[in-house]
């Protein structure tokens, strides 16, 4: 163990499967480098567990560079931990102190059932996306890139909304377990662009309907989602979705 390495205590949610009742278990994380990511720290803990013949802790991860939206840990009372604008894989152990006890929980939502330990099933997000349907695009020869002119501000807003990686931190952060930030980002990224305007009425109605059916809660505008979103998706998107929904419902 080199100087400056940390020893931590982890209090982690362990749950065998979807149906079993889970509980917290305590693990020691010894010799952790401050330069490790939070997930690499879990890798170290799991290596120790495996070599001593115990079952490792199940957790979701994929790209480990903050773009896939797979990692989903609720760390010390906040999704993706104490830093703003980062995912769990981008969180480093230097954000913690030697000797800390860290509580790690899965996303808590009826619409995100726990598969095992810290891994949750977020296919409800996929079903919302699928309910949004298609965009009409003429096939054939590739068109000139600037055939459809898009105002810079609209393009920027659409791009910012499209930065959503669907990690579910908004749902995890919301005291009502509402998915409004996610759904509104997906509604906005298409409603803002000419290509997405054709189906925007049906899209917002269907996506909101699917969101309600999946059992997510209702938005009370606390703003927790925006504050915890690793991609800093703005609350403006929720207002836009409300407008779109109101317009679509009235016509």
């Amino acid at each position: 163990m080199s100087q400056g390495n940390m020893n931590l205590t982890l209090k982690v949610w362990k749950q065998k499967n979807k149906n079993e009742k889970g509980r917290f278990e305590t693990f020691d994380a010894k010799g952790i480098s401050p330069d490790m990511s939070f997930l690499e720290m879990f890798d170290v803990v799991n290596e120790h567990l495996i070599s001593s013949g115990k079952e490792p802790i199940a957790f979701d991860h994929d790209c480990r560079e903050g773009i896939c939206g797979m990692c989903s840990m609720y760390i010390n009372g906040r999704p993706h931990g104490p830093k703003q604008g980062v995912t769990t894989c981008q969180l480093h152990m230097r954000s913690f102190k030697d000797g800390d006890t860290i509580v790690v929980e899965p996303w808590r939502s009826a619409a995100f059932p726990v598969i095992k330990d810290l891994a949750v099933d977020r296919s409800s997000f996929d079903r919302i996306m699928a309910s949004g349907g298609f965009v009409s695009i003429n096939t054939g020869n590739a068109k000139d890139a600037n055939n459809i002119l898009i105002p810079k501000y609209d393009a920027d807003d659409a791009f910012n909304a499209a930065a959503c990686i669907g990690c579910g931190a908004c749902v995890a952060a919301c005291k009502n377990s509402s998915a409004m930030l996610f759904v509104s980002a997906k509604v906005s990224q298409l409603a803002l662009l000419p290509q997405g305007k054709i189906e925007k009425r049906d899209r917002v109605l269907n996506m909101v309907k699917q969101m309600d059916e999946e059992g997510f809660g209702n938005c009370t505008n606390t703003g927790a989602c925006e504050a915890e979103c690793p991609k800093s998706i703005s609350l403006e998107n929720i207002a836009r979705m409300n407008r779109e929904y109101l317009k679509a419902s009235l016509t």
Partner: peptide
């Protein structure tokens, strides 16, 4: 909203975000 989160969190740091 209560139904949407049947199992609550052990530790919540609400003041960090709202």
């Amino acid at each position: 909203n209560k139904k949407a989160r049947p199992i609550g969190y052990e530790k919540i740091n609400g003041s960090a975000n709202s």
